[in-house]
Structures are given as structure tokens and as C-alpha cells.
Amino acid sequence: MNNSTLPTDEGAYPGRWWHTLDDGRVQCDLCPRDCRLHEGQRGACFVRMREGDTMVLTTYGRSSGFCIDPIEKKPLNQFYPGSSVLSFGTAGCNLACKFCQNWDISKSRDMDRLMDQASPAAIANAAAQAGCRSVAFTYNDPVIFAEYAMDVADACHALGVQTVAVTAGYIHEQPRREFFAKMDAANVDLKAFTDDFYFKLTGSHLQPVLDTLVYLKHETRVWFEITTLLIPGHNDSDTEIIAMSQWIRKELGPDVPLHFSAFHPDHKMPDVPATPPSTLVRARDIAIKEGLRYVYTGNVRHEAGDTTWCPGCQQPLIVRDWYQIRHYGLTAQGQCPHCGADAAGRFDERAGNFGRRRIPVAIQGLAV
């Protein structure tokens, strides 16, 4: 395995987590795809490539764009609510979701679209100067550009800026440990609760994602929330939602927030209807009945599903209108003012007031 952190002469960035096979191919050890590459070949993610006798990351320092978003858009509802987050991604993905809602970025094979170049220090400085509480690695999965994300995280932490990974959690054990050691929060896509769905619609498997969730809960201090995109006829049955909710309650505990979000026809599933709001409400009701304390609905306007409720007395603690916070009732200690119950999450004494804005940002900085 090569752990070098210096750029190659050609400008590509040396990748980590790989080894050479007996037949001369190089195997990528980042994720369970275990891509085995000849000279010049790229992995399934498209951005990790064999160059000579090494693995390189071709998108280090290159982004598809930067924006300042509300943290609730990641979605993270219980990680410094109302704060702003500097968001960016690169290109490529290690999953092949037929329903991808960001397919123009995640499935891009056009490196020329990565026009924004920025060093880790430039990104951290931009976030700090803009008053962002955190930087999010999002739009495509940061697992595939882990070296870049980890270096950005180090630069952010040096300036007191926190880091967020928006990820499908499809990653091997060793890089998982190293990657999440640099993260303060994560939103993990739990795309369904059957391996059949994962295999047929994403080209991957369920168990590694469950392993990531268990690892985050029991072996890290990363604050994480879960998102499930409900697709009509594919992963929205009562049976599957009950099984998933029961697993979360048993393996992760009742305080991990769960977001059910709405699918819209896109990519390779244009003929599947959009998720009706009633499906999200039904799923939320099931999850709450199964013992989960914080369950949200996404991509629809639903006050009950936007609100953070007290786990003790069921009074509204944080009332939202989409991404706008209308009421923030937590005490300075993150407790309910009515019954004193602790709310799970990371909170400031007051909520941020960034609102629902989305602000594109230009960042100037060297690629490496």
C-alpha cells in the first residue's frame, strides 16, 4: 500500500489503500468493489486510476463547484441547526444507482467540468471567512476522493471549522477508520433494507453500509443521521420500513435521526412515479411506532416532519419551514425547557439564522 502524500510528476495525486496482485494488476482497497486494474485503467468510480505501478486520484484539488448551503440541506437537522455549510464535490461515484438524483455530477466522465480548483487551505480559509460552521463533502460521494477530503478536513480543523461527509458509506474497514477520524458529522444514505435492491439498483451490497453505520455509532464520536430515498414500488413497503426501523433501533439506538425523502423520476428510472407525500408520512409514522425518536420527511412541505420533537414530553423543540428555523426552544445545555430531557445532537445556545439561501462561491487556490 502506498501512503505517499506528494503529487506525482504528472500532477495526479498518489492514492492510498491499494496493493499489487501476483498477476501484476493493482487492486484498489478503498471500497468493496475491489477494482483490479491494468496500466491506464480507471476503477468503477472513474476517478481512481492505475498510473505505472501506483494508484492515483485524478480529481485531487478539482471541484464541480462550491456553494454555501443551510446545514439542514445535507440533511442534518441536529448538527448546529440553522448554520451555514460550505459544500462541494468532485466527479464520479463508486455506486451505480439507477435512481441517482445527482447523476450529472456523480456519473460524469468529463474531467473538464471540474473547473474550480482549490487547495485544502484555500477551502478552509474560504469557509472561515464566510462564517460557515462547517464544510461538507457532498454532491458525489467523498469516499472516492477521500485523500482530498481528509486533507481539507485537517485544514478546516486548524481554523476551527467542522467537517461533514454526505456518503453512501460503501467503504472498506481500514479506509473507513482513517476517513471518519477526520469527520465531525455525516449523513449516510441507507438506500433500502434488502440486498436485492442494492444489487439490482445500485450495483453494490447492503452489508458494508450497515457495517459503516454500526462503526459510526459504536466506535466514533461522529454525529450522524440517516437518509432513505423512498422509491414507489421498490423500497417503500410497510414490511421493509418496519424491518429497517427495528434494525436501527436495535443496532444504533433510538436517537439516530432518520430522514425519509421523496424520489423524483430521473437518470435510468424516468418512468417511476414521484414519491407522494403520503408515503413519507406513512413511513415516518411507522418508524416512530417502532421506537425511533427523531424521524423527518424531506423534499416535501410537512411541518410535523420538519420539526424536532422532545423525546420526553413531545413538545416542539425546533420548528422549521423547509430550511428556515421558525422556533428554537432548546436551552443552552441542549435540553427541553418543558421537561428537561436531553436532545440528541450538537447544538449551540442559539440557532443559526442562515435560512434557506444557496450562495455560489468562487474559490481561488492551487490544486495541490
Rank of each mutant, 00 (worst) to 15 (best):
C156I: 10
K191M: 13
L114Q: 04
V166P: 01
D154I: 05
D151W: 02
D110I: 03
V152Y: 02
A126V: 11
N187P: 06
D189V: 09
R176Y: 05
F137H: 11
V161A: 08
R177E: 15
R133I: 00
R176H: 06
A155N: 13
A192H: 08
Q174L: 14
T194F: 12
V188Q: 03
A153Y: 04
T194C: 04
M183F: 04
C156K: 11
A153R: 11
R109A: 10
Q162S: 11
F193H: 14
Y148L: 14
V188K: 00
R109S: 07
A185R: 08
G169L: 07
A186F: 06
A186L: 12
T167R: 13
F193E: 09
R109E: 13
H157C: 13
Y148F: 15
M150Y: 02
A158I: 01
F193P: 03
A192G: 13
A122F: 12
F137D: 02
M115G: 02
F180N: 00
I171K: 01
V143T: 15
R113A: 03
P120H: 10
A153N: 08
V161H: 01
A153Q: 09
P120Y: 02
V164K: 09
A149P: 04
A186R: 04
P120C: 12
A181H: 11
E173I: 12
L159S: 10
F137Y: 15
L114Y: 04
H157K: 15
V166R: 04
F180V: 04
G160W: 11
A168M: 06
T167F: 13
V143K: 10
V188E: 09
S134E: 10
R177G: 14
L190F: 12
I123L: 09
I144W: 01
A192K: 02
D141E: 08
F137E: 00
D151L: 04
A186N: 04
H172E: 14
L114R: 01
A128V: 01
E173R: 14
S108P: 06
N125E: 14
E147N: 03
Q129S: 15
A130T: 01
F145E: 00
V161Y: 02
A126P: 06
V166G: 01
L114K: 03
P120K: 10
F193D: 05
D151C: 03
F180Q: 07
G131E: 10
D189Q: 12
N187Q: 14
A127K: 05
H157Y: 09
T194Y: 10
S119K: 07
A127N: 08
A124T: 06
A192L: 11
S119F: 08
G131C: 11
A124H: 05
L114M: 15
A118W: 05
L159Q: 15
A136Y: 10
S119R: 06
T167S: 15
M115Y: 07
G169F: 08
A185E: 07
G169N: 07
